[in-house]
Design a protein around this nucleic acid. Structure first.
Lengths: 195, 195
DNA sequence: GTCTATAGAGTGATAGAC
DNA sequence: GTCTATCACTCTATAGAC
């Protein structure tokens, strides 16, 4: 992995600039209204150059998702970042709506193991599950969740339900996602989990 | 809504033929490997004609999803169809894998309310929730599920978790989705729900 | 290693013929 | 109402210049 001062410094910088530009434009206009040449223009390079650094438009959009995660982790620390990432879809505001739409579409497309976003989502999911399971074990140590609860299974299900609920919520019509999630957590982990 | 003998008979037939051809090709090759002209060819018409009947390739693919549902409902009856539709993603085999990939990708894209597939998924989701909630109430009448369980909330959460699990399962690596679902149902509805 | 020029395929939009 | 011809745009692939 080359660093900023390594032999691939220029490529790294270009890729970064392109990821940032892509994320910026996606947030403002939505990924369907952004063309590769728009991104190239904002990053002050040519469309052809973009396709030297990224094989497809999709690959560039995946890099934009990763860029978003990086920003969150940088802003809130690694663990907070991992939790924040799970909440990404539930966030409000136009910026995040457009981001979440890209996220959802790529998450669906990544159901194909050969899809370039597959690896990204797989490791993201794995990280999220680990963080939540750890949190559940902490609650068990505190005596707020019964020892009989299978922390891994519970983390798995809680995240899956979260994911499904957020997708459904974005497809509308609106419903109270917060209370449903709370109800679910108390049902799975026990009534004292959120106290 | 014009019927087969109404004034738009020809258009209806074309649309049907195109939906069928699209579904057929998607199942065999995956939607990313199918071009509109491939579909036109199989339906024995021209690419330009396809774009007269469907505004975009995506609209045609949505019609293919609906075609799949229609076939299921015709084969298993309306209620069985509604249940079968929920299981769509968990189904095995190459045919259904390719179908499920299209389903997942469009479901994610439909998180945008302006997306043409939004209405399709919204009504599908509404139907599924209704069927499952009804089933839960039946179990309550039979005394196998406690009356204290909120049937609507439970149906909501069970379907959301199902959706999320299946998406995650398709993104791999494999895990035992069946036991997780069973565990979840027993946790939410009570231990006797599946007896 | 980095970038450009260019050609090709696929998609989407339009005007007009039947 | 149905269909065709045609064009513009975006994305992809490749060969080669710097």
């Amino acid at each position: 992995m080359p660093t900023k001062r390594g032999p691939y410094a220029k490529s790294d910088q270009r890729r970064q600039a392109l990821s940032r530009a892509a994320l910026d434009l996606v947030r403002r206009h939505g990924h369907r209204n952004v063309s590769v040449s728009d991104i190239a223009e904002l990053a002050e390079t040519s469309e052809a150059t973009v396709f030297y650094h990224f094989p497809t438009k999709e690959a560039l959009l995946i890099a934009a998702l990763a860029q978003h995660d990086d920003e969150n982790i940088r802003a809130h620390g690694a663990e907070a970042g991992a939790i924040a990432e799970m909440a990404a879809r539930a966030e409000a505001g136009v910026q995040r709506t457009n981001y979440a739409r890209l996220y959802n579409e790529l998450a669906g497309a990544a159901a194909d193991p050969t899809h370039p976003a597959n690896e990204f989502f797989q490791s993201r999911w794995e990280r999220s599950t680990r963080v939540v399971a750890t949190d559940i074990r902490r609650l068990q140590n505190d005596g707020r969740v019964a020892e009989s609860v299978d922390a891994d299974a519970a983390a798995h299900i809680l995240l899956a339900a979260w994911e499904g609920l957020q997708l459904q919520w974005m497809q509308g019509p609106p419903f109270d996602i917060g209370s449903l999630l709370e109800w679910h957590i108390r049902t799975v982990l026990g009534p004292a989990a959120l106290d």
